[in-house]
């Protein structure tokens, strides 16, 4: 039979962290772990279909065999997985992938039907990035227009008195420049990924604003149909190992972007201490509690927190 070529759908550009952190290791796992030559071929920049929001459906329908996406883009499918994204759900320094896999079998698996979960990981912690505004207390956010990625961040910004704005990421650069938005809440990697370091003037770290989460899934039928050898090669790396690698690369990209911001003359980084962060964290606790109650996620939260 012909050697199997698995298609990995990547909607980000080929230079994105995901390539080195996840696609390349998966490809070498197949290349090195099989003799009949199963291989992984990545299609970058949305070559197999544009929007990241459709990634899960794309895998289920077999347009691609494998691909990564954000639960937050189709939040209704992932109510419990998204608990990891909530402000304060996890301490900032605690890895997201470990929390996700802790809760996966018992609580989260049902949110991933018809696929095999390959990787689940978290991004670096969310921070506030502003143009010409300094945010040191929740009061400083009052009335400011803040770009948010999803409904959880929207509620968090409302709880802090800001006005949440939905805007495609490619329009954020111009939006900051014209004043359409005063700032955004996201991980530090967007500073380099979307060149926002050219327009952001202050950054606030410290408060627990949650983090984004990601998944990589494989079509269930394709996974079950892999040769024993190929499946063994994949199983070796799938789950926590590849998730850990990906998350660490993510955090490294973010750390680098934040370091560059610190050393840049045009950006001021304010690292709030525990006392200054507490005002934010207290205001956000209600958002987190309300969300968990709404989705009936008490058990999932406990599992995520390792209790």
């Amino acid at each position: 039979t012909e050697a199997q070529e698995l298609k990995y759908a990547n909607w980000a550009p080929p230079f994105h962290t995901i390539t080195e952190a996840q696609i390349d290791p998966l490809a070498s796992a197949f290349a090195e772990g099989t003799t009949e030559g199963a291989s992984l071929r990545a299609f970058h920049g949305g070559e197999l279909g544009a929007g990241p929001a459709d990634q899960y459906v794309r895998i289920v329908q077999g347009t691609a065999d494998m691909g990564w996406g954000l639960p937050g883009y189709t939040s209704s499918q992932f109510p419990k997985t998204l608990i990891v994204e909530l402000p304060g759900a996890l301490p900032l320094e605690e890895p997201g992938y470990a929390a996700l896999w802790r809760a996966f079998d018992a609580e989260l698996k049902s949110e991933f039907p018809m696929t095999e979960a390959i990787a689940l990981w978290g991004a670096e912690p969310n921070i506030l990035m502003m143009k010409e505004r300094e945010v040191l207390s929740p009061g400083d956010l009052s009335g400011l227009k803040i770009r948010v990625a999803g409904s959880i961040a929207a509620e968090a910004m409302e709880a802090l008195g800001a006005t949440p704005v939905q805007l495609p990421m490619t329009q954020v650069y111009n939006g900051l420049q014209t004043g359409l938005i005063d700032g955004l809440v996201s991980g530090a990697s967007v500073l380099s990924d979307f060149k926002l370091n050219e327009v952001v003037s202050t950054v606030t770290t410290g408060p627990n604003l949650g983090r984004l989460t990601f998944y990589t899934v494989m079509n269930k039928g394709v996974y079950d149909g892999l040769s024993d050898e190929a499946r063994a090669a994949l199983d070796e790396i799938k789950g926590e190992p590849i998730s850990k690698m990906t998350e660490e690369a993510w955090v490294a990209t973010a750390d680098k972007a934040l370091e560059e911001a610190r050393s840049s003359d045009s950006i001021t980084v304010n690292d709030l201490d525990a006392a200054a962060s507490k005002a934010f964290d207290d205001a956000l606790a209600e958002v987190t509690d309300a969300y968990v109650a709404e989705v009936g996620g008490e058990a999932a939260l406990a599992a995520i927190q390792g209790q």
């Binding site: 459906v57 329908q61 499918q77």
Partner: peptide
Amino acid sequence: FKSAQLSQMLNLSSNLLR
């Protein structure tokens, strides 16, 4: 139509207004 059935199964909806 096939995608719509899948959307129902995955419980897909718009992010804010559901």
